[in-house]
Design a protein around this nucleic acid. Structure first.
Lengths: 338, 338
DNA sequence: TTGTAAGCGTTATCAA
DNA sequence: TTGATAACGCTTACAA
């Protein structure tokens, strides 16, 4: 950078002491300084093109006004809206965010976490929660401020902002039931994620209460590829194959789209498919995807607010914010043909 | 944060001077210190759970090892791959990235730019280039390190990493010509963006050299909404309406999808549509979108490399990296029916 | 209301 | 090879 003007130069030009410049320029202390000294300082600062060095400030105040957002993969379409939600809430309050990806790799997660820690971030937003030994668990043990978004931390009592997934699954199953389906499949996400368990449990409960046949296939990941694999398994069932599928998320649903087409079948005629999340452009798919809309942006906002609250109160309260979801019926579900 | 162990504690435990600890722990200076003092220091550091404070380091070294990525909107699907490309290149070298959005608003861009400047970022990657007075122009004038990605800075001689857009457009037009189309439309993006001009110019040239009728409609933005508006204008032409459309990007193409459907027409029968970028999931649209694939991730990698080069050499060379693109033919283009 | 000066956790220069 | 010491640019008691 080419910034060579500091508080000292401003002080000299304004004819005051550096300390006074600091006070005059800081909103919290500006009223400690005479109104026209303040004006003089301001003028000098502007004239010199003074830019505060928040790194120096942070060193002194022990707060960097930065946070870290740790997610599996930014190219998973659910994350951009979440990240934007977080930032919409944080930037106005003077925070900036580091956004880093883990690709679901625990080692990478550890590395980026430590690296952000060195950068003195004031807190974390984790989109990576899972059961078992985790960075979140370690962070909690070290008293680090953080919140979970979209998933919970699998036992670690950080606050979290999630969707009301059970409601969404229930609505999806009921919708399929009302269309006349009597046997329904579910692609569950990896068991380590809270979302997977919540959705699978809700699926079981909904089917049972409606008296529907059900089959659950666990997908290895929340990805298109995993969706294809699970679909292969599903279609291999043959004549007994369920007539409808509630996929654990939209990507799994998309994988099912591919497999169904490759098998020479058509959705929704041969298989009705429901997704989860209502990822951007889900309505533009072939066919438009019936799915459960999760307010992703708002999830980000809530997570940011929970973190802010934590940073302000310096206490980690175990609050779970659950936002309502909504079934969006589009073209991938229909009356069963068999 | 709850980090209370600094270099001083480590020094005390290891029985050496803080300066020695610094040297022992810094890869660049570790060979200035006796091999077993070094080991002792390392052990002490580990034992205390020492985490370096890179903010303090940055203050002293005048380098934060952070960069700022300024883009219009992370939820525009072309940006996540670009950002990941950038980070794939930078994180290995010890950099972390702030990702901020401008929503195309010059005021917001200014604000976030200044805010990142205060945070002492070592450089910027701009995905926001346009003609006219810009943050990039100002940054250049101030000697700030930066590169452009996807677009150039409209006259500001920062290096840039872009796609070979003209080739892509040419391939698209030729493809439509070969299918038998004789009159083709183009939705051009806002004139302020370099991509818009390059693509529109290439469109004109390609049509002229192939002897095709052409109409160009300028869209107000690179968005689905703008695509709808432009399509309304296009369809209003009536019987003389071109039989094919080369949209300035995939979002505009998607807007055209919507309008075509609303008008009771079908793509590609009534209108063949080509997009640009091959955004994620373009193959899953209804119909699958014929589009020009731009290596977005690689664009990010190149941009990061250009920035790294700049930070290392301390010189801003005006290098333009242009990556090859490729027409991907899918279901949205066909032989014209009229 | 303003000046003084210490100190945030490092690194870098200079001696020893 | 290590120690001592002065920065880096700012904030904040405390004093005046």
């Amino acid at each position: 950078m080419a910034d060579r003007v500091g508080i000292a130069e401003v002080a000299k030009l304004a004819g005051v002491h550096p300390g006074t410049v600091s006070r005059a320029l800081n909103p919290k202390t500006e009223d400690q300084v005479n109104v026209d000294t303040r004006a003089r300082v301001r003028r000098a600062a502007k004239q010199l093109g003074y830019t505060a060095n928040s790194i120096a400030r942070g060193l002194r105040t022990n707060s960097s006004m930065t946070i870290g957002i740790i997610i599996p993969d930014l190219t998973n379409p659910i994350f951009p809206p979440i990240v934007r939600g977080v930032e919409s809430c944080l930037t106005g309050r003077g925070y900036s965010a580091f956004v880093v990806n883990t690709d679901g790799d625990a080692g990478i997660e550890r590395t980026v976490f430590e690296s952000l820690l060195q950068r003195q971030v004031d807190g974390f937003i984790f989109g990576t929660g899972h059961t078992g030994p985790s960075v979140a668990a370690d962070a909690y043990a070290r008293g680090i401020h953080a919140v979970m978004v979209n998933r919970d931390a699998g036992g670690v009592p950080y606050p979290s902002a999630v969707g009301m997934d059970a409601d969404g699954i229930q609505a999806a199953v009921r919708h399929l039931h009302d269309l006349g389906h009597r046997s329904i499949a579910h692609f569950a996400g990896p068991a380590a994620f809270s979302t997977s368990r919540v959705r699978a449990d809700a699926f079981r409960a909904a089917c049972d209460s409606l008296g529907l046949e059900r089959v659950i296939i666990e997908a290895g990941a929340y990805s298109v590829e995993a969706g294809k694999a699970a679909s292969a398994e599903l279609l291999a069932i043959g004549p007994q194959c369920p007539t409808a599928l509630v996929a654990g998320n939209d990507l799994l649903a998309l994988g099912a789209y591919h497999s169904v087409r490759e098998a020479g079948l058509v959705c929704p005629d041969d298989l009705s498919i429901v997704g989860f999340n209502d990822m951007p452009f889900a309505e533009d798919f072939l066919p438009p995807l019936t799915t459960v809309r999760v307010p992703l942006f708002d999830l980000g906002v809530e997570a940011a607010q929970l973190l802010l609250d934590q940073l302000e109160t310096k206490t980690i309260r175990n609050i779970q914010v659950a936002l309502p979801v909504e079934l969006v019926v589009r073209g991938s579900t229909a009356v069963p043909r068999r």
